[in-house]
Simulated assay, not measured.
Amino acid sequence: MPLQRIDHVLIAVRDLDAATADYETLTGRTVSLRGGHPDYGTVNAIFQLENTYIELISPAGEGSFATQLRAHLDDKGDGLFGIALGTDDAAGLAADWQKAGLAATDPQPGAGTSPDGTVREWRNVFVPSANVLGLFMFAIEHVSDAATRPHARAVGDEAATFHAVDHVVINTPDGDKAVSLLGHTMGIRLALDRDAPQWGARMMFFRLGGITLEVIQRYGDDKTPPMPADAPSQYWGMAFRAADVAAAQARLADAGVNVSEVRKGRKPGTLVATVRDKSCGVPTLIVGPDPQAAED
């Protein structure tokens, strides 16, 4: 199926100005652009990274999408809202998904306007959340040139910034359904499916365009029960890549951000640090290479 990438990750926020300032602090980069979707009743701020972009999005008017965002914010507050899967062939993807049994729309035209008057155009393929594990997930084909989404500029030391997204975490009550949908129906490569009793979970890693969708089915214990079998899957957290985790951690600490000490990552040869604020309610991890491992 013609999927090429995780095009962007959507984060719902109430206060776009405050969220934009927080993500400039968090990523160490200036916002790429700000704009709005008059037909949707929303406004947004985009941080274009190497392999995807982060879209902070907020309701600002009337429209079905604005209504959906307000409901999400009232229920859950700021946080991860959805994922857009990137395609270069929206019509072909829609046909493939429809043939596979998804209630996918034909490509729907969309447009956004930046403050300087630049208009960005795209085509979306929407799927009801009931078809995709209860998640907000759709596909997008950009019609406008990529130059309309400039890369977020680093402030200070490039190595201390977030330059890419490493993975997005999804919690699910049913790993088999996740494998069937994401792997078989949608055609996203399942790189690893393993039982991890040390963490009380089944962990599935789907790879697309250099980003991992880490899908977790937690078994639960006396303190934390498993998700109800009929519960929708939920977006949970995100990990950003930094070339120098220690420098990124120090940059954030100097800016007054609540960030953990650097520690060894679960993946051999990596370092990680946990960010505890300035992330709009998204549990956030910094991950990057361990220089010591390269020397060993």
Rank of each mutant, 00 (worst) to 15 (best):
L80Q: 05
G156S: 01
L69Q: 01
D221I: 14
S180W: 09
D22K: 11
G41C: 06
H72L: 08
A247L: 08
F240K: 03
G237V: 04
V43K: 15
D7Y: 10
M1V: 13
D75C: 12
L192Q: 12
R194P: 12
N171R: 15
S58Q: 09
A60P: 11
T161V: 01
D174I: 03
S233E: 00
N51F: 00
A243D: 07
T148Y: 11
D15V: 05
R120H: 07
D296W: 14
M203R: 13
T185K: 15
L135C: 03
T270V: 09
A246N: 04
K177A: 12
H184C: 11
Y235T: 08
D254G: 06
A66M: 04
D116N: 12
A196L: 15
A178M: 03
D221V: 12
A273P: 10
R263Y: 03
T274L: 15
T118V: 11
L135S: 02
D106P: 13
G63Y: 04
A293C: 05
G61Q: 04
N171Y: 13
P226D: 00
G92A: 05
I286T: 00
E141W: 09
M204R: 14
E55S: 10
L56G: 01
G110N: 08
L73A: 02
V215Y: 02
A19N: 01
T270K: 07
T284Y: 00
P232H: 04
A18C: 13
A130C: 13
Q249F: 01
G77L: 11
L135H: 02
I170V: 07
F206A: 01
K278C: 04
L73R: 06
G79N: 07
S279C: 05
G101H: 07
D230C: 09
K76Y: 13
D244Q: 07
T27H: 01
V125H: 04
R251L: 02
F138W: 12
F81E: 02
L192V: 15
A103P: 00
Y40N: 10
A250G: 03
G288I: 12
A248C: 04
V169C: 04
Q249Y: 00
D221S: 06
P2G: 05
R218K: 13
L182V: 07
K264N: 12
E62Y: 14
P107F: 10
T224S: 05
G110P: 13
P109A: 09
R207C: 11
L208Q: 07
L271T: 13
K267G: 10
L10C: 14
G288L: 02
A103D: 08
T27S: 02
E141T: 04
G79R: 12
N44Q: 07
T172C: 07
N51Y: 00
V169Y: 05
V155Y: 00
P107A: 10
A196M: 14
D96K: 15
I11Y: 05
A139D: 01
P289I: 15
T274G: 08
P226Q: 03
F136M: 14
I46G: 02
A160Y: 00
T185W: 14
Q68R: 14
I216V: 15
V168E: 01
R241C: 02
L133A: 08
V127N: 02
A273D: 02
F126Q: 11
Q108R: 15
